[in-house]
């Protein structure tokens, strides 16, 4: 078994790590970099709690091998707030009561960020599509839609 040296750019920081080829980005983020905000919920790309942004687009970190990131820029939930100042989407989630258990929240907020970065004034339909990769079992999604609308304003 041979480890490979890879370069990862996560939240603007550069890391040099050696990984086995079968390690997923999710595992590397959580175990090597201690970025526990990225969650593991099903490990097969269905639930979306492991969502991170790769070059600004939401991807499943549980389906992406770390060796396959190949220089892409990763953003995790830890990269959103700066020096304790919450990102407007994070504020909107709190204000609109879009957070219950919180387990889907990091992935949901990152999907919302990708959506709003590409489309600052999405329709409700576009919000639903943009968030469709993230399951939430607590809120029924409605307050999450409102939070994203709120953050867009």
């Amino acid at each position: 078994m041979v480890k490979q040296e890879i370069q990862l750019d996560v939240n603007g920081k550069s890391y040099s790590i050696s990984v086995f080829p079968q390690e997923t980005l999710l595992e590397v983020l959580r175990e090597n970099l201690g970025l526990i905000g990225t969650k593991e919920g099903c490990s097969e790309g269905e639930c979306g709690v492991c969502t991170v942004l790769l070059d600004g687009l939401p991807v499943r970190s549980c389906l992406l091998l770390a060796v396959d990131v190949r220089g892409g820029k990763i953003t995790t939930i830890e990269g959103l707030s700066e020096k304790g100042v919450l990102h407007p989407i994070q504020k909107a989630f709190i204000e609109h009561g879009a957070i219950q258990c919180g387990f889907c929240t990091p992935g949901m907020i990152l999907s919302a960020k990708a959506l709003l970065d590409g489309n600052p004034f999405p329709s409700e339909e576009e919000i639903r599509i943009g968030l469709s990769g993230n399951l939430c079992r607590c809120t029924g999604y409605i307050k999450i839609f409102k939070a994203v609308q709120g953050a867009a304003l």
Partner: peptide, 25 residues
């Protein structure tokens, strides 16, 4: 290995056990 969205699930479930992955990306 292309996008990997199906492949990685198969790898995780042990449904395939390749010797190598060839990343054509």
């Amino acid at each position: 290995l292309g996008g990997g969205v199906s492949l990685v699930v198969l790898l995780k479930n042990g449904l395939i056990t390749p010797s190598h992955l060839v990343n054509i990306k």
